[in-house]
């Protein structure tokens, strides 16, 4: 017993190092391996609060560009409104209850990262605003990411510039779909993989979200095809997609709450159980 204590006392520094190294390495490995299992995330009181303060200051510096973006979006919405042929036409409702399938929450990006392989954003709305994990985040130009962690006032978003994202996407004009991921190289481009070679594509075609995901509604803009890689071995294309969004410059975003999400998930689970 005495010897054990002596050993512990002599090597206290090394033992402390090994203990803490074990903790930090397990945190690192865990953050790389599982989907949504972050213990250390910026959706908390401390970092959320600091980022919000800093962002309040920074906001004044780019008020002008934000205003311009909002004015552009307004103009686009107005043109949609005016070009409608019959404004008195009754709007078709999607379900018997007479509610729209999606709800939208406006939120603001208070922290944005884009220089590592796994990038996250922090938003200034959380559980109090009804935000839950796995909701889609978009802005007027296209998709931004998926909610990963939430706290009462803040939430973190797994950006599309993250090696772990997998988003269902399709070609706008042909319905052939593939999955969207990022190779970690450039902030302006993401990759669309597993697109069947039957699809007729050319550079410049628009890519939108597919209808298969319960996170995003169908037909939300993503980007245009910039480069086509033909692989002789497999029957699939790999495409470089140029994003409509500038991921290094994000201001206000919209969070999509899908009302029939739980219904779809329950239905699919029942199918699996049987």
């Amino acid at each position: 017993m005495q010897q054990i204590f002596n050993f512990m006392y002599k090597n206290s520094n090394r033992l402390l190092f090994l203990l803490l190294l074990g903790i930090s390495l397990s945190l690192t490995i865990q953050s790389h391996s599982f989907h949504r299992s972050k213990i250390i995330s910026s959706a908390n009181f401390l970092s959320g609060g600091v980022y919000e303060r800093v962002n309040n200051l920074n906001e004044y510096l780019n008020l002008k560009t934000q205003n311009e973006a909002l004015a552009l979006e307004n103009a686009k919405l107005k043109s949609l409104l005016f070009s409608k042929k019959d404004t008195t036409a009754v709007k078709k409702l999607d379900s018997l209850k007479g509610v729209k399938p999606d709800d939208i929450v406006v939120s603001k990006v208070i922290h944005n990262s884009y220089n590592v392989y796994e990038n996250y954003l922090t938003l200034n709305s959380g559980e109090k605003d009804g935000i839950k994990p796995d909701m889609g985040v978009i802005n007027d130009l296209g998709i931004v990411g998926i909610i990963e962690n939430t706290s009462p006032k803040y939430s973190t978003v797994i950006s599309i510039l993250n090696k772990r994202t997998q988003i269902n996407a399709k070609i706008k004009k042909s319905n052939h779909f593939g999955s969207l991921n990022w190779n970690g190289k450039s902030t302006g481009f993401v990759q669309l993989t597993d697109l069947p070679r039957l699809a007729l594509i050319k550079i410049g075609d628009t890519i939108v979200t597919g209808g298969q995901s319960v996170i995003f509604p169908e037909n939300i803009n993503i980007g245009t095809i910039a480069k086509i890689y033909r692989d002789k071995q497999t029957n699939f294309y790999t495409l470089d997609i140029k994003l409509f969004n500038d991921m290094t410059n994000l201001g206000h975003v919209y969070i999509i709450k899908r009302k029939d999400r739980e219904e779809i998930i329950n239905l699919e689970k029942r199918k699996k159980d049987e």
């Binding site: 930090s24 945190l27 490995i29 995330s41 910026s42 401390l46 796994e118």
Partner: peptide
């Protein structure tokens, strides 16, 4: 640092 940059435990290690 990890808390602020969403990086798991990389900075700590």
């Amino acid at each position: 640092m990890d808390l602020f940059s969403n990086s798991g435990g990389t900075h700590a290690t």
